Amino acid sequence: MALLDSRSAFLYLRHAISLAETLRLGDNTLPQDSVLPETLRQQRLYWLLNAVLKALPSMPEHDTAVSLGVQVGFLRVVKLFTLVDDDFTENWLSSRQDGRVTPAWVITKCEAFYRDEADADAESQMLTPEQQADLTITRHWLLTLVWRMAMMNALLDDIAPEACLSLLFPVRILDRLRQAVTKSSYEAIVIHGAGIVQKLFEITDTMADVVLYVPLGSLDDSAARVDSLLFFIRLVFTLPHLDGTRKDILGAKLERLHSVM
């Protein structure tokens, strides 16, 4: 993925998953001595491959061979992605307006991401800047996906009492993410490669659509929205793994923004 060769990346991923299933790493039939280094390593490996595999019933156990900071950061990633459960995946892949995505589900899922954020903040002193940048950007990207599911199912309203069902929810996402990103170094972001680029691109692209097509509020509100959007467009354009297609998409929306404003 870091080399932008997604076909080869998914080929290797599928092969790794097949090997994990052949070794029955997900059977949860661990030896009695569950502190064996190889057993603990296999637990971590299974969670790394867990995009399409059934989640294990418990979190990876602590391995004394791994530093505490690495262990805490890894567990935070695992806990964040356990929120991308079967319902999340099926709702994302389902057809529009089929009744699967409901306001209650959207609200519940957003609240779960907020709780994860609070838990991560409580452990922030144990996380490196790189870990914090990855977790923060990934969480806001997943929140953006939840909002897009609500949008595709016509659940949004400009006067919705719940923020995550508002047409302007991406504005809030971008504002919160900007506060976090400005505290991170550029190096702590770009070290994550193509994956972080895709997440930041999708967040920024979604915000661009909101700025362009959702009716503007006061002059100050409009200026603040545009300022946040331009901040992230500038950031995304500096990322080394941004390909020409994504540049063209954001460039076209930037030109549209200039003509509108």
Rank of each mutant, 00 (worst) to 15 (best):
T89I: 15
V84Y: 00
L48P: 04
T82D: 03
L56P: 02
V77H: 02
T82S: 06
L49F: 03
A55P: 15
A65H: 09
F88I: 02
V78D: 01
H62R: 13
G69P: 04
V84N: 00
G69A: 05
F74W: 08
V70G: 03
G73T: 09
E61V: 07
V77G: 00
A55E: 13
E90Y: 13
K79H: 07
L68Y: 08
E61S: 12
L49H: 02
F81L: 09
V78R: 00
L83E: 01
V52M: 14
T82W: 02
L68D: 04
P60M: 03
L56K: 04
T64W: 05
A65N: 09
V66H: 05
L49T: 04
V72N: 03
S67M: 12
L80H: 00
Q71E: 11
G69V: 11
S58Y: 11
F81H: 05
A65D: 06
L68V: 11
E90Q: 15
N50F: 09
T64P: 10
V52T: 14
P60D: 02
G69Y: 06
V52E: 12
A65V: 05
R76G: 11
H62W: 07
T82I: 01
G69S: 11
D63Y: 12
K54I: 13
F88A: 01
A55S: 14
F74Y: 12
D63K: 11
S67F: 11
T82R: 07
P57V: 08
P60W: 01
V52A: 13
F74H: 06
F74E: 05
L48F: 07
N50E: 08
V70Y: 10
H62G: 04
A55G: 10
A51P: 03
E61D: 12
L68Q: 09
E61P: 11
V70W: 09
E90F: 14
P57D: 09
L53H: 02
V72A: 08
A55N: 15
V77D: 02
P60N: 03
E90T: 13
L83Y: 01
V72Y: 05
T64C: 06
L83I: 03
L68A: 06
L68E: 07
E61I: 10
G73W: 04
N50D: 13
L83R: 01
L83S: 01
T89Q: 14
D87N: 14
L80G: 00
D86L: 15
G69K: 06
V52S: 13
L48E: 06
D85L: 01
L56V: 04
T89A: 13
F81A: 01
D87Y: 12
R76D: 10
A65M: 11
V72H: 04
